[in-house]
Design a binder for these strands. Structure first.
Lengths: 156, 156
DNA sequence: TATTGTTATACTCTATAACTATA
DNA sequence: TATAGTTATAGAGTATAACAATA
């Protein structure tokens, strides 16, 4: 609709390739920062991201957490083991369907969530942008995020 | 200079946090695509990215490759092992300093580089953006990339 | 039979430490 | 002694396959 595609295809492709490369680079830097900060909280990156997905008010079956994390069920076991050892999460058998184990966030887990989410939303790397630039970037990234892969974006 | 910082700090922080989260999400999707495509070339992601960094015209010491990949020397050994087994790279002792082993890209390696770089620059996820949006995104990401961490961005 | 969570297993990526051969 | 590459080892993330309990 509003796509003014005026660039010749080869130039467009070259430009896009450069943007993708720089995006990957920036994302790597962001992840590097975050992983270090999460480690400082005593959590591995994957465990921290799992905790981030849990809702204290609505215990989630492990199966659903796996889906949200885009990983196999079998991995969630070890992740939740870590969170449980740290006293941040409890497993509770679902009375309605005893096959399910729902993940309950403890009080300590709630406090940890606050810290984890502060890290996951840490925007040091965006400090160089003005407010308008930040807003523009947000719009563009959201547009990619929504329309980037219109078809089979369910699981992958 | 051109930073019109008019947003109240809390709102700015909330906005930035959202942008960072969406950026991370998009980057994850990009990496997911790429890793699958690199696997289809018979290369692990790390090996492919190592090959990408090599220059057929200027053999690189393994030490320098490690620096470019931001990883330890010891990892490069296994990476180059894979590339050598695949016939894409050769190790050659540097005559001037026999401690060094420079990495020579073979003819097959050159052809593989073309394919790898096509994947690494694959911009399917940006197809939803118009040319002007793409250019804007490129500028913003470059600005982050350069000014994001002004101080200690050497190794980390 | 089908599904959930678990276990066992394997592969990849990455880091540290110790070893070797050079310098 | 210092550096380059290697090896050994370990931890983290993720995947597949098989298993027990439950539906």
């Amino acid at each position: 609709m509003a796509e003014t595609t005026s660039l010749p295809a080869p130039e467009r492709a070259a430009l896009a390739a450069g943007v993708v490369r720089r995006l990957s680079h920036v994302a790597r830097a962001i992840r590097h920062h975050m992983d270090a900060d999460l480690a400082a909280l005593g959590l591995t990156p994957a465990a921290a991201r799992a905790l981030d997905r849990l809702d204290p008010d609505r215990p989630l079956p492990a199966r659903d957490l796996a889906e949200q994390l885009n990983c196999d069920r079998s991995n969630v076991t070890a992740l939740v083991d870590k969170l449980e050892e740290a006293g941040l999460v409890c497993r509770r058998a679902d009375p309605a369907d005893r096959r399910l184990k729902t993940l309950v966030v403890t009080d300590a887990g709630r406090r940890a969530q606050v810290r984890v989410r502060r890290v996951l939303g840490d925007s040091r790397l965006l400090d160089g942008l003005g407010d308008d630039e930040l807003a523009t970037l947000g719009d563009l990234v959201e547009k990619i995020s929504n329309g980037g892969c219109p078809e089979d974006c369910g699981g992958s």
